[in-house]
């Protein structure tokens, strides 16, 4: 009985120690809760990567970068078939769909599509890099988890968040790399 009480007290103390937040953090959390339950829930469930990018204002100190990249890489899932180069036709659908790829929000793609954003580099003629294994792998991993190459990039981690599946990621890779894809033909 006594032992249990000591243990409980210990746990409570531990809990206090862990949850001790700065007054600023406490105030911030109160503000988030004022925004409503759903808002607070999303804002308060940052993963480790999001929390680091916020803390360092998107410029990570050099000594944190290798660990950050390794952790992001570990989040990448691959298709069961092992094929990283899929079907470009389906890739184009995912690329264009605002709910899945939404790639035109930031990138130029097929040359005839003029309603494209300019925040990311143009992907028109991306296939000029060829289809060597290293190019395919980089393109796959970049699309699945952009932060595995550029920490805190504006480009979000579509694969990690389940906006598209590993198979759809392979289709996106094909849309960028297949010589028959309209991205590489004019």
């Amino acid at each position: 009985m006594k032992r249990l009480a000591v243990m409980v007290a210990g746990l409570v103390l531990l809990g206090l120690g862990l949850s001790q937040v700065s007054p600023f953090r406490a105030r911030l959390e109160a503000v988030l809760h004022q925004g409503g339950h759903e808002f607070a829930q999303v804002m308060l469930s940052q993963d480790k990567g999001q929390a680091l990018c916020s803390q360092y204002r998107d410029k990570l100190p050099a000594d944190l970068i290798p660990g950050f990249l390794a952790e992001q890489k570990a989040l990448i899932k691959y298709p069961q078939s092992g094929k990283l180069l899929g079907d470009w036709k389906n890739g184009e659908k995912v690329f264009t769909d605002p709910k899945r790829g939404n790639c035109y929000a930031c990138h130029a793609g097929v040359a005839s599509e003029v309603a494209h954003g300019t925040m990311g580099p143009p992907l028109t003629d991306y296939g000029q890099r060829g289809t060597l294994e290293a190019v395919v792998r980089y393109t796959y991993e970049k699309i699945y988890n952009a932060w595995a190459y550029v920490p805190c990039s504006l480009m979000y981690r579509g694969g990690v968040h389940g906006l598209f599946t590993p198979e759809e990621t392979a289709d996106l890779v094909a849309f960028l790399l297949d010589p028959n894809s309209p991205i590489n033909r004019r």
């Binding site: 999001q50 990018c53 916020s54 309603a115 954003g117 925040m119 504006l154």
Partner: peptide
């Protein structure tokens, strides 16, 4: 709040409205 990155788009106000100001979304 401006710098808080959260949600399934990993966004914050700052990434779009500071880093990429002058560019276009669509």
């Amino acid at each position: 709040l401006w710098y808080t990155r959260a949600g399934a788009r990993d966004m914050s106000c700052a990434v779009c409205h500071d880093q990429y100001a002058g560019q276009r979304v669509r």
